[in-house]
Design a protein around this nucleic acid. Structure first.
Lengths: 207, 207
DNA sequence: GTCTATACATCGATAGAC
DNA sequence: GTCTATCGATGTATAGAC
């Protein structure tokens, strides 16, 4: 029985470590909300998870590595918030998708900063973490494709609209809905513009 | 001659101090671009302006106070970039105004962070500095009023569009023009939306 | 995997002489 | 206004025992 001896004892040990790591990341977010993203202290973090500061290095190799864990965690949260199916026609699905994104941005300033802004000077997500980000952008593209939007310029404009709503919401009305409630209007404005430009180009081919 | 003795000697002395302060702020921006906004070191800054670190406290009272000087300086730069008169009809003036703002955002990441994002945890601009920000937003409102846009919701949507273009530009194509060149399209999209909604409400009064 | 102990650098800010 | 000297804290990271 080469398997049982290991599979039964090692697996729970790994599960314990994963659970502890999840706790560490959760507390790290909490500290970031309190002191700012760049001001997370490993001493404070260790104290919150009942460890001594050097023991944290059993869970990540450096502070940037911790940011990477948080980055991946943040995109997992984003996917969890944005991916669930939405009933209705494609336009309505897109509106609700945008509303979810803007809402997500406004829920957590530092999460928004780590995921969408360049707040930590030297930080670059690892390829594994970046894959989660790509997964999200693929999801966004598919929501756009459903309403017939696939041109790169259109996608760029759309991304600016969404990021602008989220940014204004969190910067000027945190916790409120002053920009969240413009989601539907902005989507309709965008779709009307795409239609208008499509009409203007009609009959001229695909140039 | 109570005046001459003071007016002649004190004024140049003050002018010297102002010039030195301007140098300090300029070098602070340079350090921020190199190390990040939060990582500005007063020792490094002092070395760059040929002072010892404690001597900086003759020019500002704390590090937050330095950020306040930079905040005010940044908005003065923004006003200098955005305020110059533009020839042409109101629509063209608005397009050019937006292009200037997006361009301004993309020119300096840390300036963009200090002016438009909440990167420094405890920092709040002083009332004097904030007045410059208000001056800018008044300018933006007047550009909008020229094309007949005055409703708060319209202004909110417009602000989201502009900030979204700037944000995407600096986050995903720093130094390029991928979103800058969408400025005119976005303005036209916005104006068409305002018109469309105005038409939809016509004859129904001011509700 | 967690600990103690510690290295080593850096930080913002203050005291007090000139 | 600028200096020297220094305080007190904090930061990340490593060595080595258990």
């Amino acid at each position: 029985m080469a398997t049982s001896g290991e599979a039964i004892t090692v697996a729970p040990r790994q599960r314990r470590k994963d659970a502890k790591l999840a706790t560490i990341v959760r507390e790290a977010w909490d500290l970031a909300r309190r002191d700012g993203l760049a001001a997370i202290s490993l001493r404070d973090l260790a104290a919150r998870v009942d460890l001594r500061q050097p023991s944290l290095y059993a869970y990540f190799e450096s502070k940037h590595d911790l940011y990477d864990l948080m980055f991946a965690d943040g995109y997992r949260q984003l996917l969890a918030a944005a991916a669930p199916e939405i009933a209705g026609d494609p336009r309505r699905r897109l509106v609700e998708f945008v509303r979810r994104l803007v809402q997500f941005s406004t829920e957590d300033l530092v999460r928004h900063q780590l995921l969408f802004q360049r707040t930590i000077p030297g930080f670059e997500p690892s390829p594994e973490s970046y894959r989660l980000a790509v997964e999200f952008y693929d999801l966004a593209r598919s929501r756009l494709a459903e309403v017939g939007v696939t041109a790169p310029d259109d996608i760029d404009v759309f991304s600016a609209l969404v990021s602008g709503l989220g940014h204004q919401q969190i910067a000027n009305d945190p916790g409120g809905d002053r920009w969240v409630r413009q989601s539907e209007r902005v989507v309709d404005m965008f779709l009307a513009d795409v239609d208008r430009r499509r009409g203007a180009n009609d009959g001229r081919g695909t140039t």
